[in-house]
Amino acid sequence: MSFVHIQNVTKVYNKNKVLDQVSLSISEGEFITLLGPSGCGKSTLLRAISGLNDITEGSITVGGKDITNLPPKKRNVGMVFQSYALFPNMTAFDNIAFGLKMDGLSKKEIEPMVNEMLDIIDLKGKENRYPSQLSGGQQQRVALARALVKKPTVLLLDEPLSALDAKIRRSLRTQIRLIQKRLNMTTIFVTHDQEEALTISDRIFVMNHGTVEQVGTPLEIYTSPKTEYVAKFIGNYNVWSRDQLKGIPMNGVPSQGEMFAVRPEAIQLVSTEQAGHIGEYTADGTITMATILGNVMRFDVDVAGLNIRVDMLNEHGIGRLNTGSRVKLVIPSIEWKNIQKSD
């Protein structure tokens, strides 16, 4: 049974359909991510759930209660903004306590609740600091606590990690996930970062032009993209049309389908000199570029004018593969994913 139910939500803004008949169901305690590039409608959908944006059509139900026409403060949803949106004239404690004060709770009731939150976000001892005296990561944790302290039915996170540097982003996303699991909080997370979405989510909703293009677990989305758009957005997939493959000397191209996606790390690459043990292979090619990405080496391989991207673990001996090396490529048949062409 779904806890958050969004049905046929459409939002028209200046004659543009920002959301077009979007429907999605989220279970209680689930962590889902709305993933897509800027302008795909993910933040608009989140703001529609919070009540900060109205919708043109459709309905939004949370916990069986229709909240479509309720003002934001009556929806009991918590939201964390990309810019933290902490009140600069209040300390961390007062920021967290703000919502409880608005609910008319007494100081006696508020204090233990805020202290519990400070414990959860690991900011005990910094409660008297103003936002300007906290780091970006600490500010975002305060913003998270401020949203959680009111025990909302749904937690909405609007690109909360985008303004932080990579290291803090990684540690904070783990922290967010742990807190979410601990509180069993139904959470909707918005991001344009596919790595973030894959790491943190129970399910991902990939959005494109105001519609949901594909829904699935991170593994499903990553390993089995259904459309050209998802394949290109979610990773560094090789995406080819049948027309592009015509005339290319490759073995094992599926006989069905018009569009194909192949994960770069699923392709095996062996230098021609060492390829004696390879029986059946897909194609011969020449490395046109070798790039170190840290633990992974990325090769661009030219096969009769077709560029094939290959990612390999940066392990001992890989240095022998350089620009200009002749190589044999092996693409296991299971890795040829049949996908739909996107507009």
């Binding site: 919070s50 009540g51 900060l52 003002p71 934001p72 403060k73 929806r75 949803v77 918590g78 939201m79 903004f81 810019s83 949106a85 009140f87 703000f98 919502g99 608005m102 609910d103 401020r146 949203a147 009111k150």
Partner: peptide
């Protein structure tokens, strides 16, 4: 004065006067 402050306060239950 950021719009997000107004939005955050309204989600936390404050009205315009508050």
């Amino acid at each position: 004065i950021k719009t997000e402050w107004k939005e955050a306060s309204s989600l936390l239950g404050a009205n315009s006067f508050q």
